[in-house]
Design a protein around this nucleic acid. Structure first.
Lengths: 231, 231
DNA sequence: TGAAGTCCTAACGCCTTCTTAACACCCTTC
DNA sequence: GAAGGGTGTTAAGAAGGCGTTAGGACTTCA
């Protein structure tokens, strides 16, 4: 799974259908690949590993079900069948050899796009990667809500953690006192700049190697604080 | 996830439709549950954790999309919408709030069954994952619903077990009080944080070596709980 | 009808976390 | 060199969250 826009492969022999879908998909922000025959479709699937495949069953060179079977020998890429044949036996056959959805022509663009989103959603679980923030000896797993310093877990209280992650979100930039108070204390009246000094001291004590000479949690006098990132 | 036949929950208000589908599903070997209203549907989903949900959008007591939304707050159980409304906006709406498929009435039984098989296939990756969860002296067989501590079987009540497996599903990361209450008690009004304290204490007594100093079932004060995994 | 098991609820004491205050320190400015 | 604003540090009280226990209500099964 790439970090850029999802890629859709269309396997379809009718040129006008290709043109129509290409416009629809590209204008929706997807990267687009197309193949007019089954063989080419398989080749492109191998080569580019698209995120979704749209497959017309009525191909000239090979049976759509055979293509499905050959694809499923090595890949679980979601396949949405688009076909002129609306017979129930066709649908059941395609779904049972591994297709993930079946749309009968004619169909609406928005429905197709919605079903593509469903297919992408299904593939997602494999793409669940932890957003890791690494800086020096620090290692912050935002999904786990876990902070490691030199491999050692460090416990932060809710406020400490929120203050820290707020600085991480603006890493490298100065965050003003006012903004920190708003984002951490939620704009509650009574939140004072004193709080920041206290909690910054606690964070430094827990995270910095030499709390009296902070390397990363830096003060910008009169303005706010900044999480310094290495260059 | 049980090792026996997959269980299907049908949420549908028309009695004749229920009767029809019940026959179709049971004769295909599925275990069968039904609910005539949305509220009952949610309750049964919480209680029995079916493998697939068939949802009629035209329910008398609540909007089908609301039901979808509430379900998706705590569960990824695949949902196949069956609806008399064939408008594209209906389909897109349902699919985008988390439905996995959309069938327009009238539909054929064999197509429905094929789409159920697709839905079950999608859920599989989660079940293909080692049904054995091992951590320290613990050994949890999610299929058998069996918990061993140092080789000795330990009996957990249904709620204890559900709380425990919820933490296992999110192993390593903090699960908030709210999320635990939702996933274990099903978002039923009245579920209080107090429940969590009581049941966490019971789990620790049954599972931890030194319940007063839990090694794995850890508290994140002010946030939630976390099943600590070794690195 | 009793017994066992489970779930909910209340009460109490402990512990973490938050808040607040007091004071020391640095730097700039006069 | 003194004054003053901004900042760092520490500690202690207050508030709230948490763990624990026990008892009652409810269901299930014999």
């Amino acid at each position: 799974m790439t970090s850029s826009a999802p890629q859709v492969l269309l396997v379809e022999d009718e040129p006008q259908m290709r043109r129509f879908l290409r416009v629809a998909l590209e204008s929706s922000g997807y990267r687009y690949l197309e193949a007019p025959t089954g063989e080419e479709g398989l080749t492109l699937a191998v080569q580019f590993r698209p995120d979704v495949i749209l497959l017309d069953l009525g191909l000239p060179d090979m049976d759509g079900l055979d293509l499905m079977t050959r694809l499923r020998e090595w890949s679980q890429i979601p396949v949405i069948v688009i076909s002129a044949r609306g017979q129930e036996t066709d649908k059941v056959g395609a779904l049972d050899v591994g297709a993930d959805d079946y749309l009968t022509k004619p169909f609406g663009t928005s429905e197709l796009l919605a079903r593509i989103r469903v297919a992408l959603r299904h593939a997602e679980p494999g793409a669940v990667e932890n957003p890791l923030f690494v800086l020096g000896r620090w290692r912050v797993d935002l999904a786990k809500r876990q902070v490691l310093v030199a491999g050692q877990e460090v416990h932060l209280t809710p406020l400490e953690y929120r203050l820290f992650t707020t600085l991480i979100h603006h890493a490298g930039r100065v965050v003003t006192h006012r903004q920190l108070l708003k984002e951490v204390w939620g704009g509650v009246a009574g939140a004072q700049p004193l709080y920041l000094r206290v909690y910054m001291a606690q964070l430094r004590h827990k995270l910095e190697e030499d709390p009296s000479r902070p390397r990363y949690l830096q003060t910008e006098p009169g303005v706010g604080y900044r999480l310094r990132t290495e260059d």
